[in-house]
Nucleic acid binder design. Structure first.
Lengths: 333, 333
DNA sequence: AACGTTGGTTACAACGTTGTAGGAATGCGG
DNA sequence: CCGCATTCCTACAACGTTGTAACCAACGTT
């Protein structure tokens, strides 16, 4: 039912290789031969067998994007940008939601390399770069956090600075008891560590000092975690007048918990997030956030990968920083 | 750098085929040979070349999931379930965000079939099944709406009934001027048509009659579209006391617009959505919605595909209906 | 003792493609 | 009209895997 080069060749009265040449745009083919071949291709609705091509060329034209969860809108948005950027290179993207656990991420990184994939863009949650064995020299670009130095290409944003700016922004609005939600509960979450560092730096700069009771760790970064942490903060009597959540979904959960507690935002408590997901532009109130340039992150990552695939496998790992922008909205007005 | 069966074979002192047999769990291999081979596999960190295997077997072990946009949380959640269900069959899922336009969907459906994929789960937005040519007998399962009869397997929910139930629910709460947001503006959007049908049916049953001015079409189903449509309804003087949005993101946009207009939900206007995305459980107010059983939808789709791949390519197309549940929350309390 | 049976292993071909090497036809300058 | 380059095309091998057929050894039956 499905045709091969051979079928097209027979129909056009040429050799298999000539058909291959036409398919691949090889220049030295007589116009009339080319026309005959193209006609045959069209008639038979021929489509190249990618497995065979890949086997022959050692390239698959597919890159993988491994993210913790697509349900986290940040990653869904990022995935869209990666797909777009990859399309410019003619690549298909295999989006792989890992689940975010250390074991799952290890499996993803290992299992994905089975020659199905030319390269990997990986946004790890639990793993350090050292854990990423089994890639056997397959190019990889790590996203999002400076997990580690010198082991692979990275695309990051300046988490420390961004978190410091946001905290400073809250201080500038007159807030003094600024809580943080989403601090790392375990060694996991390089991003959390960096954002926490920026947060404390800003407090120190402002002479506010770090208050342990205002810092709430969370098991994950979902809305439910944000709501639970917020409730905990309120119950604990810590009395925050602002909350800096380390991502937007946490912040949306916090908004919800504050609402349930009968507190007004930003009147009683100001709320800030991180990531600039679409929800935050429509929530009530809209959400102040740090907006990383996701489109740029995606393009830088894809371009880094392209560089590796184009040749310089052995160039030293690069680390590129994408810009971010503090975006004030109603929740801190 | 990367090893082949041959390398393992040499190291273990056996033939290539024996290694292949070990890798594939062929039973008749002497325990000590098996052990030697496995040791060699481990030492060399051998991984089978999937392109070669696929070429040989005519199967890739990859199925594609084509959805309009991952940014729409419904599809992100669905994707997660599909990945999980597919994993039970040992399949990898290639998630392909099409963008939703007719041309893009056509390209997706066509270009994806290049032997890279064993089957396709497709959630079309613009396309009818007739448009899906070029699959050349590759099994496909259509998701979400009853686009068409008898051309491919379908997994649907009963959109008409669900929409009727929701509308009846709103009527039962005493609402009389019930608006609908998200009606189809073009032939596109089978789901929209069906939900509109359920909506009108309920109105008719209740003797309320269909009021054109209460029905707002939208170009797409994003939050921004919902907000715009809501604003339009309010400005038009239609004075709805309830709004049934054809998905949750539209509803979240509508909530926002109502908030900006200074109207209370559900006090002044009740709001209902469709899809049960996570956002709706944390929005202020939480969102009444129709909850399709996404996990079931995904599993049914994957199982249908499994059936086709297992053999019966020519069985008549099946249509399976997944259950849904009306889920009242604060927005219609 | 000759026989089929089963277990364990191997050689070979094939999947559909493209790179390489080279052959046949054509064009051009002398 | 010869020699040489260029254009156009082809045959062949190879990418790494697995199905097929076939083989040898060991075994239990007759």
């Amino acid at each position: 039912m499905r045709h091969r080069l051979k079928d097209v060749a027979e129909r056009a009265g040429v050799s298999v290789k000539t058909v291959s040449n036409v398919v691949n745009g090889y220049p030295h083919v007589r116009p009339d031969t080319r026309a005959r071949v193209e006609a045959a291709i069209a008639e038979l609705r021929y489509r190249p067998n990618l497995s065979a091509r890949n086997l022959r060329k050692g390239r698959t034209g597919v890159i993988a994007l491994a993210v913790p969860e697509l349900d986290i809108p940040y990653f869904a948005e990022l995935a869209r940008h990666v797909v777009t950027a990859a399309a410019d290179h003619g690549w298909t993207v295999l989006i792989h939601p890992t689940g975010g656990g250390p074991e799952q991420e290890r499996v993803a990184a290992a299992g994905i390399g089975d020659h199905m994939i030319d390269g990997l863009i990986f946004s790890p949650l639990s793993l350090d770069a050292e854990d990423l064995t089994g890639l056997d020299g397959m190019p990889m670009v790590l996203l999002g956090e400076r997990v580690d130095h010198g082991l692979a290409d990275h695309v990051v944003i300046d988490n420390v600075t961004a978190a410091r700016e946001m905290t400073t922004h809250l201080i500038g609005l007159g807030r003094r008891r600024i809580a943080a939600i989403g601090s790392p509960r375990t060694p996991e979450g390089a991003g959390a560590r960096l954002r926490l560092a920026g947060y404390t730096a800003a407090l120190t700069e402002a002479g506010l000092g770090y208050d342990e009771s205002l810092v709430a760790p969370t098991p994950a970064w979902h809305r439910a975690d944000g709501a639970a942490a917020m409730r905990h903060l309120l119950d604990s009597g810590a009395r925050p007048d602002a909350v800096f959540c380390f991502n937007d979904t946490l912040a949306l959960g916090a908004l919800r918990a504050l609402h349930e507690a009968g507190l007004r935002v930003p009147g009683d408590v100001a709320v800030a997030g991180f990531d600039d997901i679409e929800d935050g532009r429509f929530s009530v109130p809209t959400l102040t956030t740090v907006a990383p340039d996701k489109e740029r992150i995606a393009r830088l990552a894809v371009d880094l990968l392209a560089g590796r695939l184009a040749g310089d496998r052995d160039a030293p790992p690069r680390e590129l920083t994408a810009p971010h922008r503090l975006t004030p909205r109603e929740s801190t007005a």
